[in-house]
Amino acid sequence: MRAFLIGFAALSLAACDSSNVPSPAERQAGAAPAIAPVDETLVSLRGDGLAAGAEAFYFAAGQNEVTTALSATLGAQTGGGPMLECGAGPMENASFPDGLTVNFKDGIFVGWFHNNGSDQIAVDGEFSIGAARSDVEALPGFALIEGSTLGEEFALGDRIGGLFEGDAVSTLYAGTQCFFR
């Protein structure tokens, strides 16, 4: 019986051989490259909100959180205030350098509007104000909005809109706006 237990123990140890498992040093050498740090000076506009530096906000985020992050990224708020006569009901906005305005309803982030070219602000990091019309028209989900009273208006999918002036993007927006059509 004793011989059986010794033999069983030897087989058990042999079964636990880890010679095929890489050492920590070998695993580190084959590790994926490190993730690049987020640029704290950039704003990425999205159809469902925005990101200011490393902080991302969906529509429905709190007004204080959004304005604080944008101030840290773009600089101090340059204007804003109540918009009492909007089709969506009374709202408030906050404007920042480089032509970005964010809209709030009852203290909740509901939309953004951008109308000034900036190296710091882009739609999902892909394009911004001044982008060539032909480049935007080639994007998936592009549709011209026929009969718009705002000008040459377009949509990118069902979340982002914009306006052309000539052959370039002049305005971008998403979410709730205070447009009079």
Rank of each mutant, 00 (worst) to 15 (best):
A56L: 07
L139R: 14
H114K: 05
G111Y: 04
P37R: 09
P82W: 08
D124W: 00
L70M: 07
A31W: 07
A60L: 12
S148L: 04
A88N: 09
A72F: 11
N93C: 10
S148I: 02
A69G: 08
A88Y: 01
L42K: 15
A122E: 09
Q63D: 15
G117L: 07
V102T: 02
S134G: 04
A69C: 05
A61Y: 08
S71P: 03
G80E: 05
Q120F: 13
F113M: 01
P82F: 11
V43R: 09
F113Q: 02
F154G: 04
S148M: 04
G107W: 00
N93T: 08
D39G: 09
D39F: 12
L50I: 10
F104L: 02
M83D: 14
F127D: 01
V66K: 04
T73V: 06
A36Y: 05
Q28G: 09
I145Y: 03
P97M: 03
I108E: 15
I145T: 03
P140N: 07
G147V: 11
E146Q: 14
A51V: 14
L50S: 10
D119C: 03
A31R: 15
D135R: 14
L84A: 15
S71L: 03
L84I: 12
M91L: 12
D39Y: 13
E146N: 12
M83E: 15
M83H: 12
G80Q: 08
L144K: 13
R133Q: 15
S118V: 02
N116G: 12
G53A: 07
I129P: 05
V66C: 00
L70D: 01
G75H: 04
A132L: 14
D119F: 11
P140T: 11
E65L: 09
A61I: 06
A76L: 14
E55I: 02
D135P: 04
A61K: 07
F154S: 05
T68C: 08
R27I: 13
F59G: 00
P90H: 07
I35A: 15
A36W: 12
S134K: 09
P90K: 01
G80D: 09
D124S: 10
A60Q: 14
R46I: 01
G87L: 11
V110F: 02
T41I: 10
N115G: 11
V110E: 09
T41M: 11
S95D: 12
Q120A: 14
R46K: 13
I35F: 15
G151L: 04
